[in-house]
Design a protein around this nucleic acid. Structure first.
Length: 513
RNA sequence: ACCGGGGUAGCUCAGUUGGCAGAGCAAAGGAUUUUUAAUCCUUGAGGCGCGGGUUCGAUUCCCGCCCCCGGUACCA
């Protein structure tokens, strides 16, 4: 990258690429940087290589007493990090440096590093990155400290960090400048480390069971696989409208038709809908498909998978989420959809079968319905209001109505319901799994119903996907598939109330100049 | 989209029933070789989210707008 060639008119900058800046703190830092450069100190060298990390040092030496540390004075450590605090005493100073693994106090004294290096050190600011080398010792208060014998500037920082005590708390700034958030707030770092642990735990779990990770189109001609409004985009050379996928489902099942039998995709979906503490327009979903399995097999897998993630980041299956206990120990509760409406939602029995009663109740609860909405959709709306928030402990709901499940296999005994479950933890939907509908003629009819709903004004209804039906005509083996919201799982396991706290760069409106 | 809360120094926050805009930390200069939000002295730092209006005078009152947070609606 080249700097901004526009030169400051107010003051002749030492660095001609430096932009005009009327903020005094940044000017002061530029001034110090200029002095360092004039003294022949490179501001952005790429020569220093740390050999140790702070976490490793602490793990090994945190328990060692002062005299033992003293006896190993010849053992030197080489660390790189950002200066987070600086307490100067004239001829010596304590600094706190932070690397990716933690932070450590260092002691810099003129007598040790020499006149010249100490003069360099005096020009450094909090926020600068340095490399240090030296042995460990303990201070009067027994804090493990690195005695700096040599140091070098690794990267100059032109902007001041937030204050050390309160740090950065402004939510907007934290999201817009996530890098600052990560520098200042270790608990935020921990959240994203946990997120990474969860994702790799999921991958390991599936790979151990011979699932193959695949990538299917995010830009799709026909947005299928979920009831949601898509984002639209346009390909210039091909001259065609494309949609960002709302789900990878239909492509993954084509792969099962192709014989891959066990596939998963762990990646982004895009839904053009509202934003809330539980919804971001782009979000991460695990979808996996398993031939020769049914939805009940998936329920077992779900319990295992979520439990392993919990063990990986919490080390326990019982923990608190937002002050209330969650117990992930299997088996999880299991309710029939209609039963849950009666027993948890307290709905009168006739609502389950009488369209008018259901519609009246849903509207009473604030539901908005189109004339095309069937009984299943109305009951589901009631479920969302009366039942879902009550499902704090992990719970499977089964026996979903057929008309809100256009890709699920119809139940063999009751043709009004499908072989599907959703599971809920902490009052919110975490995932959705079902035995796949693999009868092509049945699937074609379901698509037609969806198209009719779309024509009746339901923008979330699906499109007809003729190629998908053609694929089914070749034969999809009996298969079960599941989608699991990774962001929500991370929220649960990191005890975060908002999805934005588990997404590094949540979508925000542009900030104004 | 609607309802509520918020936007003041680099950061965390006070404040003005309309009268030169404040603190702590951070910063600059000085003192200081064991600090832990180090301490002491001195100093500087601000378009009070943006644009209009009322007024002798607006950060404060009025109107419009922008951004963030929470809730409702849509959804996972």
């Amino acid at each position: 990258m080249t700097g901004n060639p526009e030169q400051s008119k107010k003051k002749p900058a030492q660095n001609p690429a430096a932009p005009a800046d009327d903020n005094i703190l940044r000017r002061q830092r530029r001034q110090k940087a200029a002095e360092l450069r004039e003294a022949g100190i490179p501001l952005f060298p790429n020569t220093f290589r740390p050999r140790d990390t702070i976490a490793e040092i602490k793990a090994q030496y945190e328990r060692m007493d002062a005299s033992r540390l003293e006896s190993m004075e010849e053992t030197k450590f080489i660390l790189g990090g950002r200066i987070m605090a600086l307490r100067s005493f004239g001829k010596a100073a304590f600094i706190k440096i932070q690397d990716r693994s933690g932070s450590l106090q260092c002691h810099v004294e003129k007598a040790t590093v020499g006149e010249e290096r100490y003069a360099l050190f005096k020009k450094l600011d909090v926020g600068d990155m340095i490399g240090v080398r030296g042995p460990l010792f303990r201070t009067r208060t027994q804090e493990l400290t690195l005695k700096v014998e040599s140091l070098q500037l690794v990267t100059k920082s032109y902007r001041p960090l937030p204050e050390k005590f309160h740090g950065l708390t402004d939510v907007e700034q934290r999201y817009r400048q996530r890098y600052l958030d990560l520098i200042m707030n270790q608990d935020v770092r921990e959240i994203f480390k946990s997120r990474s642990t969860i994702v790799s735990t999921v991958r390991r779990y599936l790979e151990e069971r011979r699932f193959m990770e695949v990538e299917t189109p995010m830009m799709q001609l026909i947005p299928g696989g979920a009831l949601a409004r898509p984002f639209e985009t346009y390909h210039n050379a091909l001259g065609m409208k494309l949609y960002l996928r709302v789900a990878p489902e239909l492509y993954l099942k084509r792969l099962v038709v192709g014989g891959l039998e066990r596939v998963f995709e762990l990646n982004r979906n895009f839904r053009n809908e509202g934003i809330s503490v539980r919804h971001n327009p782009e979000f991460t979903m695990l979808e996996f498909y398993m031939a020769y399995a049914d939805y009940e097999d998936l329920m077992t897998i779900t319990e295992e998978l979520v439990s392993q993630c919990a063990m990986a980041v919490r080390g326990a299956l019982k923990f608190e989420y937002q002050g209330r206990e969650i117990d992930l120990n299997p088996p999880w509760r299991n309710f029939d959809f209609r039963t849950s409406l009666l027993e948890i939602g307290g709905v009168p029995p006739e609502v389950l079968f009488k369209y008018d009663k259901a519609l009246a109740l849903s509207r009473e609860l604030g539901g908005v319905h189109k004339p095309s909405d069937g009984l299943g959709k109305i009951l589901h709306k009631i479920f969302e209001v009366l039942v879902e928030p009550e499902l704090w402990q992990p719970t499977f709901i089964t026996g979903y109505p057929r008309d809100i499940s256009p890709l699920s296999r119809t139940n063999d005994l009751d043709h009004e319901i499908v072989d599907r479950f959703e599971f809920f933890i902490a009052g919110r939907e975490m995932g959705n799994g079902f035995s796949e509908l693999n009868d092509p003629d049945d699937q074609r009819e379901r698509f037609k119903e969806q198209v009719a709903e779309r024509e009746a004004g339901d923008e979330e209804a699906r499109f007809m996907d003729k190629d998908y039906v053609r694929a089914l005509e070749y034969g999809l083996p009996p298969t079960a598939g599941e989608g699991l919201g990774i962001d929500r799982l991370v929220m649960l396991l990191t005890d975060q109330p908002s999805i934005r706290e588990v997404i590094l760069f949540p979508l925000l409106r542009p900030e104004r100049a």
